[in-house]
């Protein structure tokens, strides 16, 4: 039994990882998409993490084209003012 403990832990870790990822992707409800305004100094983290620089676009996904910069955030929670709440979890969307 002791011999297989390592394998059991690996299987457990893979299962927990897959479960938490699947659970997160299946979450529905208060997760919205926000488009980032194009602006000078957009790469500056202070601007990127300022919710006021984002505009609410509902629950649709963003179509981002161009160079590799952040174009918005998805699966974010609204802060009550139509902007993303960056104290909660969110997914960054970048131009590919």
């Amino acid at each position: 039994m002791k011999k297989y403990l390592g394998i059991i832990v690996v299987i457990l870790a893979v299962s927990v990882s897959a479960f938490t990822t699947a659970k997160k992707s299946n979450l529905v409800g208060n997760s919205y998409t926000y488009d980032l305004y194009g602006m000078p100094g957009q790469d500056d983290p202070v601007n990127l993490n300022n919710g006021a620089n984002y505009t609410y676009v509902g629950t649709s996904s963003l179509s981002c084209t161009g160079t590799a910069h952040r174009c918005g955030v998805q699966d974010a929670t609204d802060d009550g003012f139509g902007h993303p709440d960056f104290t909660k979890s969110y997914t960054i969307r970048i131009r590919n």
């Binding site: 832990v9 870790a13 927990v16 990882s17």
Partner: peptide, 8 residues
């Protein structure tokens, strides 16, 4: 540590 590294 195995759990931590496999999970992450």
């Amino acid at each position: 540590l195995i759990f931590l590294f496999v999970y992450t």
